[in-house]
């Protein structure tokens, strides 16, 4: 029942960006869209098993999100994958640079993806970047 293809490129380490990307991924996926996320650059470290989800704030909203106990962005991505079948992939380049293996990442993370494959899959759909 896929209605739209939504591709999200997530590279930021800021709480607000991670939160918004998680919201779009989870709500998009549970609304019947075909969602895929490529996690790269400074965002990848938050998807390691046992990593802290205390991301630095870009501004005031980040602090308020934390204080008011908005859902953790990692929970949102997990729900996107488990409730909405979103595919969340680590970027293979970022994994090489960071020196991590697939097994080091959260269990909801799908196989590492290169840009050629991600761009091919994203063709013709919505692309969001954070």
């Amino acid at each position: 029942m896929a209605q739209e293809k939504i591709s999200i490129v997530l590279i930021s380490e800021h709480r607000e960006d991670l939160q918004m990307a998680g919201m779009i991924a989870s709500v998009g996926a549970v609304s019947g869209n075909d969602v895929s996320v490529l996690v790269s650059m400074n965002a990848l470290k938050y998807f390691l098993k046992g990593a802290s989800d205390k991301a630095p704030f870009a501004g005031q909203m980040g602090e308020i999100l934390e204080r008011k106990k908005a859902p953790s962005f990692r929970t949102l991505f997990e729900q996107a994958a488990e409730l909405g079948e979103a595919r969340i992939h680590p970027c293979s380049m970022a994994m090489d640079i960071l020196g991590v293996e697939w097994r080091d990442l959260e269990t909801f993370m799908k196989e590492p993806l290169g840009l050629t494959k991600f761009l091919g899959d994203a063709k013709g759909g919505q692309v969001w970047s954070f």
Binding site: V27, V30, P71
Partner: peptide, 8 residues
């Protein structure tokens, strides 16, 4: 719970 918590 804040958005999108209740929906989830």
């Amino acid at each position: 719970s804040f958005c999108p918590g209740p929906l989830m």
